[in-house]
């Protein structure tokens, strides 16, 4: 039996953590994701850019209480990719 290939974008610890976190919320600030994932700012920025490039998340830059704020949300494409990834993982785990 051939297993479905795992999405290489999501098959990375930090990117998977970000997407899993965003699945449970509608939108989250950069600082919130940073705190929950325990990643470094630089690494998180890079991984968010990758997720944005493939269209899995949308990034919104605004001002919150006079300070620049970056917030992220999953796109429908990101939700589908996550669901497919979870289904593939379940297959691997039998």
């Amino acid at each position: 039996m051939a297993f479905a290939p795992l999405d290489p974008v999501l098959h990375n610890q930090l990117r998977l953590a970000v997407v899993s976190l965003l699945v449970g919320v509608e939108e989250a600030d950069f600082t919130f994701i940073l705190e929950k994932t325990g990643a470094t700012r630089g690494n998180l920025s890079v991984q968010l850019s990758k997720l944005k490039e493939v269209g899995y998340i949308k990034v919104k830059k605004t001002f919150k209480e006079n300070y620049p704020n970056t917030s992220c949300a999953l796109t429908p494409q990101g939700i589908t990719a996550f669901e497919q990834y979870v289904a593939a993982i379940k297959e691997y785990l039998g």
Partner: peptide, 22 residues
């Protein structure tokens, strides 16, 4: 936190992050 995962590790990451979101 930037490495490839086994399926078990993936599942743990997913569960842990969904738990955080909740």
């Amino acid at each position: 936190m930037d490495k490839d995962l086994t399926p078990e590790q993936s599942l743990k990451v997913i569960e842990s992050m969904i738990g955080q979101a909740k």
